[in-house]
């Protein structure tokens, strides 16, 4: 994705997958809240897509898979579409409180105008900001991360991996995103989802509350790193190599980028796949 320093590669990478391929994949209609409201309806769940999920080519695939899951189980959901704007997380972490609060209050105006009650999001940064930092600015919503949604759908029996799913017996590990794990103590939901796969699950040596950051948080995604002897994502990918996993499950679009970059640095693209929990769910359930 769009790490600083690789901007020139952006146009090559983003949205240039063959149109035919995407058409085939994307056969569901994704409603916006405005559309539902025009029909006199309201969504029971708002899917907050986030900037990465909206613009980054790799993250867009995760976004579509979440939509597939939502349609598959028959949840009445909608997105804000062009009415959505950055939650302000990178501004806040970069120290620009003004910009953060501007973004937050504009988003709260939109969300409140549509009387949104419940939000699901695929980005732990959006999740954290909406859940923890919007309430004191007047935005009170029930906010869940997509791994929590998937876990509850599994618990309710609405999702069940197909017999002989492609992950059976595969060695899978999970990378805890800081803003899901340590920041909000969501450690179990993504693991519960993976446990249904009948796969060979293995923990990284630094996991759960001791998990190592991918290197993208705190607005690092958007800048060159300070001088050091290594990139943080390379340090992290070494944990993955040590685990001998062939699949790394991710739950954050930024971790996704960083870990994929790490895999590339180590030239292990053939051996190690990086997949979001939502993508794994779609494939395992053959949705």
């Amino acid at each position: 994705m769009v790490r600083h320093g690789s901007m020139h590669k952006l146009t090559e990478r983003t949205g240039r997958t063959s149109k035919k391929e995407i058409k085939m994949e994307n056969t569901i209609h994704i409603p916006t809240v405005a559309e539902l409201v025009a029909k006199g309806e309201a969504p029971e769940l708002l899917f907050w897509v986030g900037c990465a999920g909206s613009f980054d080519e790799r993250a867009q695939r995760i976004t579509r898979d979440i939509c597939k899951i939502l349609s598959h189980v028959g949840i009445k959901y909608a997105i804000l579409g062009t009415e959505e704007s950055c939650t302000g997380d990178p501004a806040k972490r970069a120290g620009n409180e003004f910009l953060f609060q501007m973004q937050a209050m504009m988003n709260i105006q939109v969300l409140d105008a549509y009387e949104i009650k419940k939000i699901v999001t695929a980005c732990p940064h959006c999740f954290n900001t909406l859940k923890n930092e919007y309430p004191s600015l007047g935005g009170n919503y029930e906010v869940i991360h997509h791994t929590q949604l998937i876990q509850s759908l599994i618990d309710e029996g609405k999702l069940r991996p197909a017999d002989g799913n492609e992950f059976k017996g595969k060695r899978i590990t999970y990378h805890d995103p800081c803003y899901l794990g340590r920041a909000n103590e969501v450690y179990e939901a993504p693991r519960k989802v993976l446990e249904t796969l009948d796969a060979d699950l293995v923990e990284l040596k630094r996991c759960r509350s001791n998990g190592l950051c991918c290197g993208a948080g705190g607005a690092q995604m958007f800048k060159e790193s300070e001088p050091g002897h290594k990139d943080i994502n390379v340090e992290r990918i070494e944990d993955v190599l040590e685990s001998k996993a062939s699949i790394v499950a991710a739950a954050c679009p930024f971790c996704m980028t960083m870990i994929r970059d790490g895999v590339k640095v180590k030239e292990k693209e053939q051996e190690i796949q990086v997949l979001d929990i939502a993508e794994i769910t779609v494939r395992a359930n053959k949705i």
């Binding site: 952006l10 897509v49 900037c51 999920g53 909206s54 997105i79 579409g81 062009t82 910009l99």
Partner: peptide
């Protein structure tokens, strides 16, 4: 990044109007 966010509502240089293009 901050100026992108201020102008486009995203940390990258994409137009707000293109936000739902993925659909």
């Amino acid at each position: 990044m901050l100026s992108n966010l201020e102008n486009n509502g995203a940390p990258w240089k994409y137009a707000q109007a293109d936000r739902a293009n993925w659909t």
